[in-house]
Amino acid sequence: MNLFVDALAWLFSLDRLIGGNSIPQRVLEHAGYTVLSLIVSAVIAIPVGFAIGHFRRGREVTVALSGAARALPSLGLLTVLALMLGLGAAPAVAVIVFVVLGTPSVLAGAYSGIESVDPATVKAARAMGMTEWQVLWKVEVPLGLPLLVGGLRSAALQIVATATLAAYIGLGGLGSYIFTAIPLRQYDVMLGGAILIMVLAIVIDALFAGLGRLVTPRGVRHRRRESERSLALSARPARGTTL
């Protein structure tokens, strides 16, 4: 308990607000790398995911490739890339590592969102005379958006946790508190840094949760609530029989 109090005392000390090692500075660095990496992941993965979902082709290859890349330990990848590209390219190295980590989730969200759309709906859209482009943008993408946002959400969480490694190659971020404090055995700083990362992760997760609710089309939301209600109704008598 004492350690926790010490960590809070460290967190809320006025000294944390000034200088190059201040909390606002470190939070900005950490969030900056997270957001930048997420954007790059999205730019790469969303078009590919949409294509896979729409044409129903290439899924196995892409999933295997991105899954294998993600299985690489991030710290190892970071070190190897930094040795190959030099520490002068450290920001690029960090972004590549985080993009490798984030891309599979975004990809999965993008294609499974499109694949989750009822085939009857897609057929109906085609029957109405929509072009393939229109089918994608007016039917599949809006209906698949909640799953895509879910993919972005899990990618963001993984990146925000792993962005701790940026400190290993001199890029700062909240990991620098932890990396500095471990050899000095400053447990209050370690815990304080960890708390900051947790808070940042929760904030980002909450933002995406809100975004997910916002992008769920009203018709789908309504239908989902109705189906939940009917599910609950049908579940009640079933439970009764086992008693």
Binding site: T79, A82, L83, L87, A167, Y168, I169, G170, G172, S176, F179, T180
Partner: peptide, 10 residues
């Protein structure tokens, strides 16, 4: 500049 590999290759 912080480089976390204890005077290693990086």
């Amino acid at each position: 500049v912080a480089i976390g590999d204890s005077g290693g290759p990086l």
